[in-house]
Computed example of a mutant assay.
Amino acid sequence: MNARVEHTDVGAYALGLLEDDDRLAFEEHLSLCPACREELTELSGVAIALTGMGPVEEDPPPSHQGEGEVIDLLRRKRAADRRTRRGTFVIGVAAAVTLVAGGLAIGTQLGSGDPGAVIAGEHASHLGPAEQFYADGTPINGTGVGGVTGGLVLESKAWGTHAALKLSGIKGPLECELVAVSKSGERKSMTGWSVPPSGYGVPGAPEPALFMHGGSPWQIDQIDKFEVTTSTGKTLLTVDI
């Protein structure tokens, strides 16, 4: 995955907020990442609901209850992040969209002009989709090497198996992928990503763990194990099922 592309960019892409170079880089990543494609499908309804609510202003007027609260959240994030660095705004907006999609229920009249339209769910989750799915499930712990720890939460789908990965104790820079290994020994990549030099869950890392979605066309009973491997062929984590 391109170093400037993050999985959290899917929210900003859904709203059309990425600049041209970031949009092209993300579209290239999107063609290779089934997890981001699935998340983009889930967020498309949110993007449609927010369409027509007006541009994001630096100094917004007072908002009304409901959809205005969402727009104010995006506006405040933009204003704050402009004072830090350019890239942070995109990630912040993506996080706000994820909050709306994952933790808030948008009323069916949102954007219709109905004064009764509201946003429900005061106690919205602050977790991203992959992290929320992992937190809600029953993790299967894996066996790592060199201080790496992690596990998977699995879900059967009509199309195969959906997995949420948690990975910690890993230093970069690395290119990794989550691989499903069938009972017959066949291997299929479920998703891939890059680990920045700061890593995840190690001293100095900004995040305690990496959370990632992945998908396999095989059903769970066809799979023997999952592996997190590097581009050099090293296995960092094995999850037997």
Rank of each mutant, 00 (worst) to 15 (best):
F211D: 00
A205M: 04
E186H: 09
I223L: 10
L165W: 05
S182V: 14
A209T: 05
D221N: 14
S216M: 08
G204W: 13
E175F: 06
S216F: 06
K171S: 09
G215E: 01
P208L: 08
P173H: 13
K225Q: 13
P173I: 10
F211L: 09
T229W: 10
E155T: 10
P203S: 13
I223H: 00
I220P: 08
L152D: 04
Q219E: 15
W218N: 06
G192L: 09
P217V: 08
E177Y: 09
S189H: 14
K225E: 05
S189G: 15
L167I: 03
P197N: 12
G215F: 07
S198K: 05
L152N: 05
T161F: 03
S156D: 14
E227H: 14
E155Q: 15
L174F: 07
V202E: 03
G172C: 12
V153D: 11
G204H: 08
G160W: 01
L174H: 05
G215D: 04
S156W: 05
A205E: 03
S182M: 12
P196S: 07
E175P: 02
L210Y: 04
L165S: 02
K166I: 08
F211H: 01
K225L: 13
P217Y: 12
R187L: 09
A209M: 12
G214T: 04
V153K: 05
E207K: 02
L154G: 04
S168T: 12
G199F: 01
P196E: 00
S194M: 13
W218Q: 03
G169H: 10
S216A: 15
V202K: 02
G215N: 02
K166R: 14
V228M: 04
Q222N: 14
M212Q: 12
V179S: 04
F226T: 03
A158P: 12
F211V: 04
A158H: 15
